[in-house]
Every structure is written in structure tokens, then in C-alpha cells.
């Protein structure tokens, strides 16, 4: 019984470490930038991608029908279009308003204005777009949803937001801040462990073939194959490094001696993916999530800060 209690206490200590809200500020600003860039990148194609049958690239309704097969409760742009229809607003206008709202939500997150409503609106609208355009979605969409989901649930606003400066909000419970950061950290460990494991199971990552294939196939062929071929002896080393980096993330990111090295390597990998393959949105969201989860200088609280928070909360809890 004592063993069980000790185990439970350890689990609670692990899940609820006291944290400052710096990581949350990084997540909010980073995702705000991500949402704004996402909206701006898709500006010229937004209506074309999400229009109904016959007016766009592929039918939004088809994507939504596939999504509805899993569950009808998953948010989609069709809901907003139907709502607009009831009050006499056309599809094109509704889609444009949705795009504008998404951009506004991104800017609000960036500034820290109306943090919670902005996070909820950004999550909802992005999820609607990702699900309605399910056939056109790719990895970056999943990671944006993950980030916005956690951001929406985290104890906003943080100290660096305009919300905090305009309306002096009370400091958030450091243990609750620590919990949400821990959840993000654990999620990234899942992402890299299973991503790394799947790569290790493919022969092409051990001999550099997969790096060659990924960097020479459109639309990722930013570097000419003629240039890439000069580094052919480096490709197997880089391929194996990626496998080990991802697979080892779950272990080495937590250790004091290796944590910062692993983080720098992972960030370097995502910067390289962004620059050499043109996957800017994917690279940005991964960098933001990693910085928020394991970023420098906010891994542990300084004693003074911890004491200050403790004093505030002791005062609040005392009747």
C-alpha cells in the first residue's frame, strides 16, 4: 500500500511540476504566427480549395462526407456554410469570413489579445478547414490541431500577453502550467518515438535512399539533384542520424546532459526540412512545439520565482 502511495505521489510530481508561463507564451506566440502564416499562404486558394462541388478544385462536400463517416460531430466548414445559408449569406462570403476570422485569431494570439477566445476560434476554424479539406490535408495540419488543442486548454493568458497588461490577471497555478507543458512534452515523445521507429523499419533510411527520394521528388526538390549528388556519401549518415535522433528523443531529451544537444539537433533537423524541402509550415509548427515543450531557460523554476508563486498561492488558499 505504501509502495502504491509512493508510486502515485511520484506520478503526481511528474505530471504536475511547478512551471512558469514562459513556455505558454512561446506556444501562444508561435502558434499565432503559424496560424497567421497558414492563412496568408492559403489566401489566394482558400475559396478554390474549400468550395462546394463544381466550383473548386475538389468538392468540399466530398471531404466532409469522408469525415462524417467517422463521426458527424467533427467540425467542418459545411456547418458554417449551412449557418450562413440560414441567414442569407452565400458560400463564398462565409468562406471569406472564416478565412478572415482565422487570420484575426492568429494575430490576436500573436499579440496576446483575447487569448482564450482567440485560441478556441483558431482551433475550431483550423479544424473545420483541415477536416473539410481532408483529402488535401497533410502532416502540418495534424500538428497545428495538436498545438491549438493544448493551447486552448492551457491556463491562458500568460504574463507576456496584452490581456495580462490590460487587465491584471492573477498568476496561474504553476502546477497546472506544469501539467499542460508535461502533456505537450509527452505528446512530442510519442510523435518522435513512433516516427523514428517507423523510419528504422524501412531499409531506405539506413542507406540514404529515402533522403535522396524525399529531396528529389516534387514539390520538395528545391535542391537540384546535380548538387545533391555531390553529397551522396553524407546521405546514409544523415538518414541514420534522423532515425536515431527521433528514436532517441524520448530518452535523451529528458536528461540534463543531453537534453539541450538533442533539442538543438531536432530544431536543426526541422530548419533543414523547411529550407531544403520547402515545408515551411510543417517546420515552423514543429519548431514552435519543441521550443514550447523543451525550450531553454524555462525547464525549471528558479528558487526565487518558485517561492514567489508559492507565497501568492498560500495567501490565496488561506481562508
Amino acid at each position: 500500500m505504501t509502495w502504491l502511495r509512493r508510486w502515485w505521489k511520484r506520478l503526481m510530481d511528474f505530471l504536475f511540476p511547478p512551471e512558469t508561463d514562459k513556455w505558454l507564451a512561446v506556444l501562444r506566440i508561435g502558434l499565432g504566427l503559424q496560424v497567421a502564416v497558414y492563412a496568408l499562404f492559403l489566401k489566394s486558394d482558400w475559396n478554390y480549395l474549400f468550395a462546394r462541388t463544381g466550383s473548386g478544385l475538389v468538392s468540399r462536400e466530398l471531404g466532409e462526407a469522408i469525415t462524417s463517416f467517422d463521426s458527424r460531430l467533427i467540425p467542418k466548414l459545411g456547418w458554417l456554410v449551412a449557418l450562413g445559408g440560414h441567414i442569407g449569406i452565400g458560400e463564398e462570403t462565409v468562406l471569406s469570413v472564416a478565412w478572415a476570422c482565422l487570420l484575426c485569431a492568429g494575430c490576436c494570439l500573436l499579440l496576446g489579445l483575447f487569448c482564450r477566445p482567440a485560441a478556441i476560434i483558431a482551433w475550431f476554424l483550423h479544424l473545420c478547414a483541415a477536416e473539410s479539406g481532408g483529402l488535401l490535408a497533410y502532416g502540418a495540419d495534424n500538428f497545428m490541431t495538436i498545438g491549438l488543442f493544448y493551447l486552448m486548454l492551457s491556463p491562458l493568458p500568460d504574463r507576456y500577453s496584452l490581456d495580462h497588461r490590460l487587465v491584471k490577471t492573477k498568476p496561474k497555478d504553476p502546477q497546472l502550467l506544469g501539467f499542460w507543458r508535461r502533456v505537450l512534452q509527452l505528446h512530442l515523445c510519442f510523435v518522435y518515438f513512433f516516427g523514428g521507429l517507423a523510419k528504422c523499419l524501412g531499409s531506405g533510411w539506413w542507406d540514404g535512399t529515402n533522403l535522396w527520394r524525399s529531396m528529389t521528388r516534387p514539390p520538395f526538390n528545391i535542391i537540384s539533384p546535380d548538387v545533391l549528388i555531390r553529397f551522396k556519401y553524407l546521405l546514409p549518415i544523415l538518414g541514420i542520424s534522423i532515425c536515431l535522433l527521433e528514436l532517441g528523443y524520448v530518452f535523451f531529451i529528458w536528461m540534463k546532459k543531453t537534453g539541450s544537444v538533442w533539442l538543438v539537433c531536432i530544431l536543426g533537423m526541422h530548419v533543414a526540412i523547411g529550407l531544403t524541402m520547402g515545408m515551411y509550415l510543417f517546420a515552423l509548427v514543429m519548431i514552435v512545439l519543441n521550443l514550447a515543450a523543451f525550450g531553454p531557460d524555462f525547464g525549471s523554476l528558479s528558487l526565487a520565482y518558485r517561492q514567489r508563486f508559492h507565497a501568492v498561492f498560500t495567501k490565496q488558499l488561506t481562508p
Binding site: D70, S71, L127, N142, L148, V191, C200
Partner: peptide
């Protein structure tokens, strides 16, 4: 089934992380 699917979609976790794996 629908509840689990809805939750996983809302959390962005409806699919695994096997991008470019095991082979491109």
C-alpha cells in the same frame, strides 16, 4: 466509436506519425 473518433480528430491525433516512413 463516434465519440472516440470525434475526440481524436479534435485533438489532431486521429492518425499516427509515420510520415515518410518506413520508406518514401
Amino acid at each position: 466509436r463516434r465519440g472516440i473518433a470525434t475526440y481524436l480528430d479534435a485533438a489532431g491525433s486521429q492518425s499516427g506519425y509515420t510520415f515518410f516512413a518506413p520508406n518514401v
